[in-house]
Design a protein around this nucleic acid. Sequence first.
DNA 1: CCTCAATGGTCTAAGACTAGCCCAATCGGT
DNA 2: ACCGATTGGGCTAGTCTTAGACCATTGAGG
Lengths: 241, 241
Amino acid sequence: MDESARLMTVLRPVRAGNAFEETVERLLQAIKLGVVPPGDKLPPERELAARLGISRVTLREAIRALSDAGYLDVRRGRYGGAFVTYAPPQPDAGDLRQAVAEMGSDDLSDALTFRLAVECGAAQVLASSELTEEQRAVLLRRLEEVNGAAIEDYRRLDTAFHLSIAELTGSTLLATTCADARSRVGDLLNAIPMLQVNLDHTAVQHRAIVDAILSGDPDAARRAVTEHLEATAALLRAFLS
Amino acid sequence: MDESARLMTVLRPVRAGNAFEETVERLLQAIKLGVVPPGDKLPPERELAARLGISRVTLREAIRALSDAGYLDVRRGRYGGAFVTYAPPQPDAGDLRQAVAEMGSDDLSDALTFRLAVECGAAQVLASSELTEEQRAVLLRRLEEVNGAAIEDYRRLDTAFHLSIAELTGSTLLATTCADARSRVGDLLNAIPMLQVNLDHTAVQHRAIVDAILSGDPDAARRAVTEHLEATAALLRAFLS
DNA sequence: CCTCAATGGTCTAAGACTAGCCCAATCGGT
DNA sequence: ACCGATTGGGCTAGTCTTAGACCATTGAGG
């Protein structure tokens, strides 16, 4: 709260780990967020290394680690590549408890608060801006996609819907921050069983968010997102107790 | 907007530069945000290097660069250290135009949008939570401090006020994100002349933000922060044209 | 079948970064 | 006047990371 807290905030570690570790985290993020869906492959090593700003050697170490861990299937030759084999695990309360234990109770509440703040902020900004027809179409399409999703695609399309809100603001910083916030709670969300009741509620909440944004009502958007994320957090806590 | 945009978002560079460059940025952030006020010194090299997770050699290179650039005065011996000599430059429209040209028009609007989203999110979260007496006291004290600030301390205390909102949510992630957002527009804000009229308006807006938070009204908090930041952005644009 | 383009696999030399150690300067206290 | 604690200054050996070149494998298309 006081000045020394701010020192801790700003003078925090410059790097979260070595290049290898950070690369593994980033690739894992792409996989778990479904940015590269199961069956698709990562970009070629040379291109990917350039995008990530690291050497091919380091990238290959990270890919090797993920391959060993079962997230990727690497194939040589033309039309080869690093194919995503990861499928979201079956929801399990045990996994959830373990995941929470790993990240710590404080970090969990931090991550949930963070996600609430940035997603509300994004929705509010988007609701305040003049939307083009194309933007409206994208938002509606994402909504339909998640509503009509098969169970195995549901998490991925839900993520896509949420991230689209931030992306549509046109702010790269906001988009990356929302992606980061989402990936921090991704493993936990995956551990929640997908009951039809919950999916129905979620569909209603998603619809409310889109309606608020499309009608240009930032306060309503804020409330809709808050309600949706609080409901999700409540589900999490319910499965923890 | 489509899938490939999300690839760009997630598979962005893992590192913004080498350890030296990132360290310079971080120290500059601490200095410009006023986390270490002019006249104070940075923590001892050994301690600071440990906090930043880098070697002393790299830290010393960064300190050397900032010393050469006139931000720090390094003194040896007991009670020595790296003393902050930086004082915010006199506001100047020329500086502003130059700063904007350096960061690019797109990046500027990105940074402003980003800041709006995260600060609104933080204020809304804080307004939604049960505040202790101590938290209320901190918020009110910060408000009084910025209102009663001498001109040379104004920017720093204004920053302190804004960051306190995020810090009081208890979310470290949110606090660091708000600090990051603020530092992205810091140089621009510094270039805006501080006219008494603007300071008066700012004081009213700050008061409205605090009132909304203390009365537990997230929508009002959102609106108050939006109004304040939009007014600041409007001032920026006015001095640009 | 052969060829070729795309892609992963491997090696090497150079540079970046680190950990740990010791030196040098400064200042308060005895 | 000295001592000791604190702090910046500097060196070295070793590890991490990179850039770039070259090799190996695969599969489509002629």
